[in-house]
């Protein structure tokens, strides 16, 4: 077997495509299963409106599926991509693209199952607000997809942007690191956003009068939960677009790869934690709407504290990129 550049590029593309779809299939399937489980509970609670619940379950699952569909698009693109000038650098970028999309789809898929499930259960509890619940579910799960959309953007950039004549060492590590940074950081934020959206569907079913407040706080909470994913996006942009002096020393490459891994793993926990804070705030605003202002402020301060670990990770990544 000859190990020429073409072979390595197609190897990277196939491996990337496999990873993108394989990893991307994890989250959405679990999320959809949760929706279906809640729909079953809802039907047994209120069998008269099983048709409405069934419809809502299918809509919710269709939205939860979108993260996997992004992964499918990227996987197919990687399998049939025609690389005009195969270089080793392109191979590393394609592998990074696959990893980025695959990992990035896990959290959003997992998270967007929650609003679907809670909306089904809420319809059983409060059939009068069915349309309101479906709308809220759609908004909540669409916002959950943001981390997956970021991951898709980074993948598409890695695949299609022409980065010119960057030196192979250490740029290969930067592209791989860019994919890992965005992909891993998207996991926590996607899941956390889902927690907040689920709580809002539950809250609206309990107390339909509070719908406006609950939806607003859900959006703010989800937006803040996405901050770790945004840090991941920032680090991958810097890794992709900074130009590096050529250096065959292993340490230069490893610093860039390490920067991506650091930001990626560092973003998982804060994303989930922020989502939990938002979930709590949304849940209790629905029960106690008079104190919505205080609850929102406490949520934001708590999220800021829980985010500080993501900020440490970002600081370390930036030091690895610019100083080391």
């Amino acid at each position: 077997m000859a190990w020429n550049v073409e072979t390595i590029v197609s190897l990277a593309a196939y491996l990337g495509g496999g990873l993108a779809m394989g990893l991307g299939a994890i989250g959405a399937a679990i999320g959809e299963g949760y929706t279906a489980a809640q729909a079953n509970a809802a039907v047994s609670r209120n069998p008269k409106i099983s048709a409405d619940i069934f419809k809502n379950m299918l809509v919710g699952q269709a939205v939860a599926e979108s993260a996997s569909i992004f992964a499918l698009v990227i996987a197919i693109l990687l399998l049939f991509l025609d690389v005009p000038v195969p270089t080793l650098l392109k191979a590393s970028a394609l592998l990074g693209a696959g990893l980025c999309m695959g990992l990035g789809a896990i959290g959003s898929g997992l998270g967007s199952g929650y609003p679907g499930g809670q909306a089904c259960f809420g319809i059983a509890r409060q059939p009068a607000v069915t349309s309101q619940l479906t709308t809220n579910m759609l908004i909540g799960s669409a916002v959950c997809q943001t981390p997956a959309i970021f991951a898709m953007v980074v993948s598409l950039m890695l695949m299609f942007l022409n980065f010119g004549n960057a030196p192979l060492y250490p740029t290969w590590a930067a592209y791989l690191g860019a994919g890992l940074s965005m992909g891993l950081a998207a996991i926590g934020s996607g899941y956390g956003g889902g927690l907040a959206a689920g709580a809002s569907c539950e809250g609206i079913a309990r107390q339909p009068k509070t719908a406006t407040n609950v939806t607003t706080i859900m959006l703010v909470g989800q937006a803040v939960s996405q901050t770790p994913a945004i840090f991941g996006l920032l680090v991958s942009f810097i890794l992709m677009f900074k130009s590096y002096p050529e250096s065959t020393a292993l340490s230069a490459s490893m610093a860039l790869l390490g920067a991506g891994i650091c930001m990626g793993f560092g973003g998982i926990g804060p994303g989930i934690g922020n989502g939990m804070a938002a979930e709590g705030a949304v849940r209790w605003v629905a029960r106690n709407v008079e104190n919505a202002g205080d609850l929102m402020r406490i949520m934001l301060v708590g999220q800021a504290v829980s985010q500080s670990t993501a900020i440490y990770a970002m600081v370390v990544s930036l030091v690895l990129i610019f100083v080391v």
Binding site: V153, A223, I230, F231
Partner: peptide, 21 residues
């Protein structure tokens, strides 16, 4: 300062991401 980064990159990432997709 990270608040500035997160608020502006959230909007930028969503809109630019949408147009790239």
């Amino acid at each position: 300062l990270a608040k500035i980064v997160s608020i502006s990159f959230r909007l930028f990432g969503n809109i630019m991401g949408g147009s790239i997709i």
